[in-house]
Every structure is written in structure tokens, then in C-alpha cells.
């Protein structure tokens, strides 16, 4: 039995190795949580940037040619777009609140950014964007702020847990 070694001398370096690996994993997780938390801010900033363009009635875009309009067809009625905006805002808020309740770590701000830009595009195509800009802007700010709040509270709680774990490892 020459390969038998004293267990006490073998355990110490292994536990040191585990601690180092754990510490690295915790640091990686902390970095991931910081990145996740910042996503909400990036989403909000991007939406404000898009809204700045929409507020100028998308003047930086070339006007739609008659040919393009003929291909796309008539714009949907403005009332229908507005009703769709109300329904979308209501369901988005309900979904965010339910995710908040379930403690989910998913950020859905990017898809909301797409939907909201779609509403800007529809109003622009119907030539009523200046009249309806503030409705889309208010909906977007509410939805994306709530998304940010949801991901931020999740990340804050997770970060606190990770930091407690890290401080226990440091002891």
C-alpha cells in the first residue's frame, strides 16, 4: 500500500483549490449580474435616443415615395393603432409585474424596444406621429423603467447573496 497518503495533508490543498475556484466563480457571477443590471439602463437610453428621432417626426429618414406607399398599402386607422397601443401597454405591464412576482432573471426590454419602435413607425406611416408621440413615449418609459426596476431588484438581491458568500469565503 505504498500509494496511501495521509488524508490530513491531502485535504488542505484541495480545499484551498476549491475556495479559489469558488471565489473566481463568484466574481464571474458578480460581473454577470452587474452586466445584467446595466442592460435595463442601456434599453432605456436606446429608447430615449429613438424617441428623440421620433420627436423630430423622423426627419432624418428620406420621405416615403409614392411607389413604396403603393406597395405597403393604406395605413391602418389611427384609432386602431391607439387601441393596439393601450392593449400592448396593459399586457406588457401585467407580464412584467408577474415576472417580478416570480423572481425571474430575464430581461425583455429589447423586444419592447422593437414593439415601441413599431408603434412609432405605424404612426409615422399614418402621418400622425407628432399628435401621438407622447402616448408612445409615456408607454415606453413606463414599460422600460419597470423592466429595469425588475432586473435591478433581482440583480441587487443576487449580488447581496454573492457578496455574503464571498465574505464568508474570505474569513
Amino acid at each position: 500500500m505504498s500509494d496511501q497518503t495521509d488524508p490530513s495533508t491531502e485535504q488542505i490543498p484541495e480545499s484551498r483549490f476549491d475556495r479559489g475556484r469558488l471565489r473566481r466563480e463568484i466574481h464571474l457571477e458578480i460581473r454577470r449580474l452587474h452586466r445584467l443590471s446595466n442592460r435595463g439602463l442601456w434599453g432605456l437610453a436606446l429608447f430615449i435616443l429613438i424617441s428623440l428621432g421620433a420627436q423630430q417626426n423622423l426627419r432624418f429618414l428620406p420621405p416615403l415615395s409614392e411607389g413604396a406607399r403603393a406597395v405597403l398599402g393604406a395605413a391602418p386607422p389611427v384609432k386602431l393603432i391607439s387601441i393596439a397601443l393601450v392593449v400592448y401597454s396593459f399586457s406588457a405591464l401585467i407580464l412584467i409585474l408577474s415576472r417580478m412576482m416570480g423572481g425571474s432573471d430575464t430581461y425583455r426590454g429589447w423586444s419592447h424596444l422593437g414593439y415601441l419602435s413599431g408603434f412609432y413607425a405605424f404612426y409615422y406611416y399614418a402621418e400622425v406621429l407628432p399628435e401621438n408621440f407622447w402616448a408612445v413615449f409615456a408607454a415606453g418609459i413606463t414599460i422600460l423603467t419597470l423592466e429595469y426596476y425588475q432586473i435591478w431588484t433581482y440583480c441587487s438581491e443576487a449580488l447581496r447573496t454573492e457578496q455574503e458568500l464571498l465574505s464568508k469565503l474570505e474569513e
Binding site: N132, A138, A139, Q150
Partner: peptide, 15 residues
């Protein structure tokens, strides 16, 4: 979250 969701939705509806 409740205040933000309710106020935001009411503002959108009011506009």
C-alpha cells in the same frame, strides 16, 4: 412598481 405601472398606464390612456 405598483405606482409606476398604474401611473404610466393612466398617463398613456389619458394622452
Amino acid at each position: 412598481p405598483v405606482a409606476l405601472a398604474v401611473t404610466g398606464f393612466v398617463v398613456v390612456c389619458c394622452i
